[in-house]
Simulated scan of single mutants.
Amino acid sequence: MTKQEITCDDILRELRSKQYRPIYYLMGEEAYYIDLISDYIMDNVLTDTEKEFNLSVVYGADVDIATVINAAKRYPMMSEHQVVIVKEAQSIRNIDELSYYLQKPLRSTILVMCHKHGVLDRRKKLAAEIEKVGILFESKKLKEAQLPAFITSYMKRKGVDLEPKATSMLADFVGTDLSRLTGELEKLIITLPKGQTRVTPEQIERNIGISKDYNNFELRSALVERNVLKANQIINYFEKNPKTNPLQMTLSLLFGFYSNLMLAYYAPEKSEQGIASFLGLKSPWQAREYQTAMKRYSGVKTMQIIGEIRYTDAKSKGIGNSSLTDSELLRELIFKILH
């Protein structure tokens, strides 16, 4: 495995076995993994007593690169290591000068740079210097298709199982904000009755506030089956509960589904496994809806639907629309999808 391909799990595995690097440069659009790694280092490398003298946490907006380098050059007091964590490292000016320190980094220092909502230019000398002596990790946003697998894996580590419908409800409702998603998962774990290790759609409804019968997941299923009555019941519910069912969330989910459906027509193998593999889905059962939808919608109709979703999105933002409310726009879109 090359250093560019290193994963969050690889880094945590090293840290748990007490293999430490002089620098961890954690960057990218997904804050969750950056926080996970930096929090692990902050909480576990030093004992509580050692932290008093050997843990420094600074913010990029408050320090310059010289201050960071000076902190990194200090020797630990009554400890094998010192930890220096720089949050919001993207705010530090002249960060390229860090490469001078990395020519000969202090092995007793663990320097953690947290660079969120962006990345370091890998073509620059600094990136090469980091990779030579430490870890350069890019935390990428998960795609929507990867969410069910993330949820299942996260809960399995906690000894909890989820029914597939419960997993899909959560993925559709929360989306790709992993910090918020894990917060909702922890809330679910706390509310599980003693001795119960399986989460049902009813528990999602009770504890997260998503209706098990009237949500985006069920709307998608109704559209797949071309069940006009059920689809209209759901959009009526959405109309009465606009705060928990915003139009943009529904449009995003529908656009993702019909875009994938369009791709599924090009899958060389139309079995569950073949479609799942072609679309990058983690589980073959996720491909079942696409198989069903391919029987209900032609490729031409699917292309028209994608165009209508884009048009509705534009109108919801005020482009070419002077009077229709979000619920009226959704009702119009659902009619066009089904007819």
Rank of each mutant, 00 (worst) to 15 (best):
Y32M: 10
I23Q: 00
Y40C: 02
H81E: 07
R107A: 15
K51T: 07
V86Y: 09
V58S: 01
D96H: 12
V63D: 01
L98K: 06
S91H: 15
Y20L: 13
V86L: 13
V83L: 05
Y75E: 10
L55D: 10
S79I: 05
G28C: 01
A31S: 11
K132V: 11
R123S: 12
A31F: 10
N44I: 07
R74I: 09
D39M: 04
A127I: 12
I92C: 08
V57P: 00
Y101P: 13
T109A: 14
K18E: 14
N44Y: 04
L111A: 08
P105F: 15
Y40T: 04
M42K: 15
K125E: 10
M113D: 01
G28F: 00
L126K: 08
E50R: 01
L26H: 01
L120C: 04
Y101S: 08
L111Q: 14
E129I: 07
G28P: 03
Q82F: 07
M42L: 06
Q82D: 08
I23M: 00
I37V: 15
D35E: 14
R123G: 05
L111W: 05
D35A: 14
N44V: 07
I110G: 03
K73W: 07
L36W: 06
K104M: 09
I69M: 10
M27Y: 02
K51W: 04
A72F: 14
E29T: 10
G118I: 10
Y75H: 12
V119Y: 06
R122H: 06
G60Y: 12
I37P: 02
M77E: 13
I85D: 09
D35Q: 13
I135Y: 07
E50K: 01
K87M: 02
R107V: 12
V58Q: 01
I41W: 00
R122E: 09
A89Q: 05
Y25H: 06
V63S: 02
G118L: 07
I69S: 09
H117L: 09
A71S: 13
I110E: 04
A89R: 01
Y32H: 11
P105N: 07
P76R: 11
Q103P: 02
H115I: 03
Y59N: 08
V112E: 09
F53A: 03
L120Q: 06
R74S: 13
D43L: 05
K125H: 11
V86Q: 05
E97Q: 15
H115M: 04
I69R: 04
G118D: 12
H117E: 15
Q103I: 01
I135M: 09
E80T: 07
K125A: 10
V63P: 04
D64R: 12
K87V: 03
N94Y: 15
R21G: 00
E50I: 07
S38F: 00
T47P: 02
Y20N: 04
R93E: 13
M42C: 11
Q103D: 15
I37E: 00
E52S: 04
D48T: 10
I65P: 01
I37N: 01
T49K: 14
D64C: 06
A127W: 14
I69E: 06
I95P: 02
I37Y: 00
G134M: 09
V133N: 08
M78S: 08
V119T: 15
I37F: 00
N54E: 07
G60Q: 02
N94C: 08
E52M: 08
S79F: 05
V68I: 15
